[in-house]
Amino acid sequence: MIFSLMKRNIQLFFRDRSSVFFSLLGPVIMFVLYVVFLGAVQSEGLKNVFPGASATDLDNFAITWVFAGILTIVTATTSLAAIQVFVADRASDRFKDFAVSPIKSSKIVMAYLASTFVISLFMTTIVFILSELYIVARGGQLLSVQNAALSYAILVLLCAVFSALNSFIVTFIKSLAAFSSFNIIVGTASGFLAAVYVPVGTLPKTVDNVINLLPFSQAASLMRSTFVQQDLDKLVSGNSEALTKIKEFFGIVIKVGDFTLSYSLIVAILTSLFVVFTVGAILQIHRKLK
């Protein structure tokens, strides 16, 4: 019962070409910006910090760093686009059709959440593979098996967290028009909030602190930890002072004030957010179905 409802939700998402396109628009814009000029600016800045480093190493680090950010954003934007099915069902009164059927509303709720997660993970997986292909094609190095597995595990966690968060948020949106406005805001704002457009190190300290309190920046830092590790090691080659500095500047390690958010703490925070917003979304959607 849940599966055929999930199948329906997933089909509706993929058949709506525009929603698939817009779910990737934010990340695509980010990518284009980097290829066109932000990447060069980044490498230039890095060259000043590591005058001895090779241009290739600098470039490789810059591009993997960008992709770590893009992948983080993709988990948020695709999960938001996927839950559009719920908003559309609500706006068009389709819940009435569910209400005259003997299906339990808990199953409908689970189908919404599960299909959102599945869509988001599917899209993210594709972007993950494309990213790796692009990096390798440019002469960068492939992720090691361990780092690839870790990175993917992180992406699974992020898809789950943002699916739950977005599912909860959209229960407050009544119309498709409001939903698409919100979609655009998330698409653009998440790039800033995850400090993907510009590294946190370039931001004022207060802004930095506020951003790091939010899950986007935390998610990005977690993602970067495994995704850029190989290129970062190559770049700093044992210079531990430089490593600490660069990690903070690029948001690989993030701080709120003087307090460093360890990766295990971030995982704990994200997991709790997942639990809280899943429960919140279940209760909210349940209420809307009545």
């Binding site: 055929s4 329906r8 089909q11 058949r15 009164d93 389709r94 009435k96 005259v100 059927s101």
Partner: peptide, 28 residues
């Protein structure tokens, strides 16, 4: 009971067959 509503409540992007099959699942 079966209910036909005033406004169409099936999914525009699914075929008639898919629509009926997906709603059939509600009834186990």
């Amino acid at each position: 009971i079966g209910v036909v509503f005033q406004t169409s409540l099936l999914d525009d992007l699914l075929t008639v067959r898919e629509n009926i099959a997906s709603r059939a699942a509600f009834y186990n």
